[in-house]
Nucleic acid binder design. Structure first.
Lengths: 189, 189
DNA sequence: GTACTAGTTGTACTACTGTTCAATTTTATG
DNA sequence: CATAAAATTGAACAGTAGTACAACTAGTAC
């Protein structure tokens, strides 16, 4: 058998399977956070959700904190990609951001809630803080393509964050036009 | 002995002491949230912090949820009073709000963090949600004294919330002037 | 004094927690 | 084939969780 890639690098089937398992466990963690909140995350609940054993969860993530860091990183990565898409795509960036925020009311609600729970955890766990900061840094980067005024950038970040809170906690209106109007207030001259 | 108030109502020393104890337990709960986060709140940790026994904590608050609701309510009440002060006091209301938000970086950091932790909990516990909404409703009321534009009101609420996040999670600048400038962007014509 | 109520304590039970570890299976290497 | 490495399992340990409950103390009313 020739177990090589096009690059000629060997692929260890064991490690590949391990990576898959690791990803499954992270996904299971997010499912648990979505269902029961961050407080519901234990090696046992995660393992059960992933259909494996407790020991395997500790095999990949020695401590619960490691697991939470990995889960938050995963969500942050996804959001980073989404925002980078908006930045790189020609067109109205504020409208794109408004649509992304509006998703927090529907399909993206679970993800947004999970991100928020983990971000709150981060306030108390230093290793989590850089990861939690990413969402805000990404918005700031998007804002920087629209204005040079630092106050306007800070205002857009704050508005985005506050709008998400409103949607998640207040069941506020998730009309993209309304959201865009609020965002526009932050960056207009 | 004449155990009556000016109104002539009898005061039961036992009940009075009970009310004091109840308040002490709530205060202890906030201290625990401040130190270890909402996840650190258990009947035992709270009782230890309050200098009483576990059973007494369950005597006043049958379930942990009851205790968390009471603690969040206490914080929300304090914030409500602060904001009402700003509304009722003549002068620049935005400057007052900016000073209040800036406190989240210093003396008020613990309180603000506790409120945020409990508010995040509230997303998942329906009985907590109305209490968690109060902070935002109060800001909206303050905003309503400055403008009639619903978008501007929503923008000020979102900006206030986002600025607090920035301070708590990013260690962002807590300069009242900077904060006021960002807030001003939300409500100006 | 007695009777009653509110507050308070210590104890105990069951359930679940993070974590460890030796044993086992699966896969790769030579 | 044999050997080693990675993945996976089951069981176990010690610690802590929520909660219930009977017993006890302190304050009230008559």
């Amino acid at each position: 058998m020739d177990d090589t890639t096009d690059d000629g690098e060997h692929i260890d089937g064991r490690r590949a399977r391990g990576e898959r398992r690791r990803a499954e466990i992270i996904e299971a963690t997010l499912a648990v956070v979505t269902r029961d909140g961050a407080a519901g995350v234990t090696h046992r609940t995660v393992a059960k959700q992933a259909g494996t054993t407790t020991s395997l969860s500790t095999y990949y993530f020695a401590t619960l904190d490691d697991l939470l860091v990995a889960a938050l990183t995963s969500v942050a990565d996804a959001y980073t990609a989404r925002i980078r898409d908006i930045i790189d795509t020609p067109g109205d960036k504020l409208a794109g951001l408004a649509r992304l925020i509006a998703e927090s009311a529907g399909s993206g609600r679970e993800r947004a809630l999970a991100e928020r729970e983990l971000a709150t955890l981060a306030a108390r766990r230093p290793p989590l803080r850089p990861v939690a900061r990413r969402w805000r840094e990404n918005i700031a980067e998007l804002a920087a393509t629209l204005t040079d005024d630092p106050a306007a950038i800070a205002a857009l970040v704050a508005a985005s964050d506050g709008l998400c809170t409103a949607i998640l906690l207040d069941n506020a209106s998730a009309d993209p036009d309304h959201i865009q109007a609020v965002l526009q207030r932050a960056v207009r001259d």
